[in-house]
Design a protein around this nucleic acid. Structure first.
Length: 455
RNA sequence: GGCGGGUUGGCGGAGAGGUUACGCAGCGGAUUGCAAAUUCGUGAAGACCGGUUCGAUUCCGGUACCCGCCUCCA
């Protein structure tokens, strides 16, 4: 445990050493998806980023000393809307969506977190926390709602660098009449008979958005823990509100130590949006033939704190690199993880730097080191492979090409060789002919159906 | 309007106050029936204007442009 991990803490705006609150153990919470639809490729970025951090933490502290919690938000008005629209039970929708999520994130090589709590299983904990906040004078009930009193928490706005007064000045939120302050946010809201609801001291209702993360992190990690992650778009209001709730409900007044935020993702230089037609789910990309490993490689190519651009060009390059590396490490056993790779990751999760080290290892022909190091990044794992193989036995084509070539060397008529070679290349094969013989390797876009028919 | 982030060679994309990032593409050589692959070598940067410094792409200030959040979208 000689490596010290340094991480940029958005709470303090500084890059800091990770010093676990409990020596030798690391606890991390990351905001997970609202389960009403397939995850899009923007949703997948924090998954890959924090999975990579999870892998690094396990490498350094030992797998059994790292606890990673990522929630499923399965109570939400978007889910309610979908249920109303389709007539399906909510639980059906959320169960199905969680299944999709697991399948899609598995394809990207993301490990399952230690715990994946569902919000609906922690309603009691949320109600208890809300009651506590009321008792301590940080929240109040009004017209079936319970609201958090932002004026009761002096540090409100600190995470996102805003003051309550500034926010009110620029606010575009509609102010409900029962709010004491325009910035007060909902902890609990009433449900009518058509909506899911739970009994509470304030009547039948459902939780507000932010309280679930406060309740679940406390239940599974404790009042304080080491790392809290999520997309930068969650910094305000979600994380700001989480901090307010948790710090006011916790006796220590402390919550997560290091806050990490990943930047957003664009597609071909533009914001991903349905109206621009550049909106993709992870499943869309997988169906289009981008292997999950290739998608992961593209993500790792940009530092998590910088905006990332998804482009077809990058995916093509990533695919070529991974093909090369998979060929180089074929049959090899993982050796030692390279120090330089760990050092890069330990420096605020510099995945792009780590990939550069991988290139170096590949250049040196260190298959064992490359394999072990790549696997630390969640690449070159056996379960992510297979896409780089032909899926058919290419021996008949190899033999025919070799035969024609041998003849041509005698007759000096290379036309038949070139014709076959052209056809094979058109099918997406890479054709290598050398003194040692003929080799056919599937390249990007290889299509078995386009292979020339041999007589 | 408020808050935050960014601007690096043809493209992508890092680190470091002074020494080659790296990958892809390009160019030249070797190799090849031709190619591919491989291999050797090579050119190319730090938005703009100031400041600090012996020295800044790296620190500070300003300008321009881009992006995000403030609309329960990661």
């Amino acid at each position: 445990m000689t490596t010290t991990i340094r991480l940029h803490n958005t709470r303090t705006r500084q890059t800091e050493d990770l010093v676990p609150l409990i020596p030798g153990k690391v606890r991390m919470y990351v905001c997970g998806p609202t389960v009403y639809d397939r995850a899009h490729i923007g949703n997948a970025r924090p998954v890959v980023v924090f999975d990579t951090l999870f892998r690094l933490l396990r490498h350094i502290y030992g797998a059994e000393h790292v606890t990673y919690v990522r929630n499923f938000t399965d109570v939400d008005d978007k889910i309610n809307a979908k249920a109303a629209q389709t007539g399906r039970p909510i639980r059906d929708i959320t169960d199905e969506t969680i299944g999709w999520y697991h399948a899609d994130m598995d394809a990207l090589g993301a490990l399952r977190p230690t715990h994946e709590p569902r919000a609906t299983e922690y309603i009691g904990a949320m109600i208890a926390m809300i009651s506590d906040l009321i008792d301590r004078g940080h929240a109040y009930a009004a017209e079936g709602h319970v609201l958090f009193d932002v004026r009761s928490y002096a540090d409100y706005g600190k995470l996102s660098g805003r003051s309550v007064d500034d926010m009110i000045a620029g606010a575009r939120v509609e102010v409900a009449p029962y709010k004491r302050d325009p910035m007060d946010f909902v902890l609990w809201k009433p449900s009518d008979d058509t909506l899911p609801g739970w009994d509470s001291p304030w009547g039948r209702g459902r939780p507000g958005w932010h309280i679930e993360c406060s309740a679940m992190s406390k239940a599974l990690l404790g009042e304080t823990f080491d790392i809290h992650g999520g997309g930068i778009d969650l910094q305000f209001p979600h994380h700001e509100n989480e901090i307010a709730q948790s710090c006011c409900a916790n006796h220590s007044g402390q919550f997560a130590n290091i806050w990490m935020h990943n930047e957003m993702l664009q597609v071909e230089g533009k914001k991903m949006s349905k109206s621009l037609g550049n909106f993709f789910t992870v499943r869309d990309l997988l169906d289009q033939g981008y292997p999950g490993e290739v998608i992961r490689f593209v993500y790792l190519g940009t530092h998590y704190a910088r905006p990332m651009d998804w482009t077809h060009e990058k995916a093509t390059q990533a695919e070529g690199t991974l093909r090369k590396w998979r060929a180089l490490t074929k049959g090899a056993q993982p050796g030692q993880v390279a120090d330089a790779v760990v050092a890069a990751l330990a420096g605020d999760l510099n995945t792009a730097g780590a990939l550069a080290e991988l290139h170096r290892l590949a250049g040196e022909g260190d298959a064992a080191g490359l394999l072990a190091s790549a696997q630390l990044l969640g690449l070159l794992l056996p379960e992510l492979g297979g896409w780089d193989e032909a899926g058919v036995d290419l021996a008949p084509w190899v033999n025919r090409l070799a035969g024609l070539r041998a003849e041509a060397m005698e007759t000096k008529n290379f036309a038949p060789v070139d014709a076959l070679k052209t056809a094979l290349m058109a099918a997406g094969l890479e054709v290598r002919m050398s003194k040692a013989g003929v080799e056919l390797l599937p390249g990007p876009g290889f299509d078995v159906g386009k292979l020339p028919v041999l007589e």
